[in-house]
Amino acid sequence: MKANVRSIRKQRKYSIEFKKRIVADFESGKFSVPQLEKLHGVANPTIYGWIYKFSTFNEQGFRIIEMKDSSNQKMKELEARVKELERTVGRKQIMIDYLEKMMEIAKDELDIDIKKNFGTPQSTGSGKTNKK
């Protein structure tokens, strides 16, 4: 006959001090959640739960996002692209200012009006058309 055997749950209990120390390590920036998971053998969702519970600046309902190295690299590339585009826009603005100044000089000294003359009447076209 088999004895009355119950299976034992393999669930660990962690002290509050341990949980707060893990959260402090995360908040200080020393370790990321995956690093803490590997270091202490604690599941990822458990650590996030502790962060939401014991953290001073993370609140429940707000998602914590950790950027991976590839995300950081992509962010740096995008920032470089933005700077490049800002320089291009700056050069174009300088060119526009230069051309406008040249048009003013042409108008004042040579009596040539390069800009569109807004005072001219509109053309009548080929006549009125009836709208249906």
Rank of each mutant, 00 (worst) to 15 (best):
V89P: 00
A80F: 07
I16W: 00
I105S: 13
K38R: 15
S7H: 12
R63I: 11
Q73W: 07
F31P: 01
I114Y: 13
K74Y: 08
V89S: 08
A80S: 10
Q35P: 01
W50F: 00
D113F: 06
K131I: 15
K116T: 15
M75D: 13
D25L: 14
I105G: 02
Q35L: 06
F118Y: 11
M1Y: 05
E27K: 01
S126M: 08
I16G: 01
I64Q: 05
S28A: 05
Q73F: 08
I65N: 13
G29D: 00
K132N: 14
F18V: 00
K2I: 05
S55I: 07
L110P: 03
L99K: 13
N58C: 15
T56M: 10
K68M: 08
K13M: 06
Q11P: 04
P45A: 05
K76C: 11
D111T: 06
T88G: 07
V5A: 10
E104Y: 09
N130E: 07
R12M: 10
R63A: 14
T124M: 08
K116I: 14
I112M: 11
R6I: 15
S71I: 04
R12S: 08
S15P: 04
E37H: 04
E86Q: 14
Y98D: 10
S71T: 11
I94V: 13
I22A: 01
L110Q: 11
R91A: 14
T88F: 06
Y52G: 15
T129K: 14
V42P: 01
S28R: 08
K92D: 04
F54T: 08
R91M: 13
Q35H: 02
A106P: 00
R21C: 03
I64F: 06
N130F: 13
E86P: 02
A43V: 04
D111P: 02
E17K: 12
D113W: 04
S15D: 07
F31N: 10
I114D: 01
T56N: 11
Q11L: 09
L85G: 04
Y14C: 05
R21T: 09
N130R: 14
L110R: 03
Q93T: 15
F18A: 09
K68P: 01
S55A: 09
K115T: 05
M67K: 10
L110A: 14
T129P: 00
D69S: 07
K53Q: 15
E84R: 09
S15T: 15
E86D: 13
L110W: 06
A80C: 06
R9I: 12
F57G: 00
V5P: 07
W50A: 00
K20V: 02
K10S: 13
K107H: 14
F31S: 11
Q93E: 15
A80G: 04
G29S: 02
I22S: 01
S71N: 07
F62H: 10
D97Y: 03
M102C: 12
K19S: 11
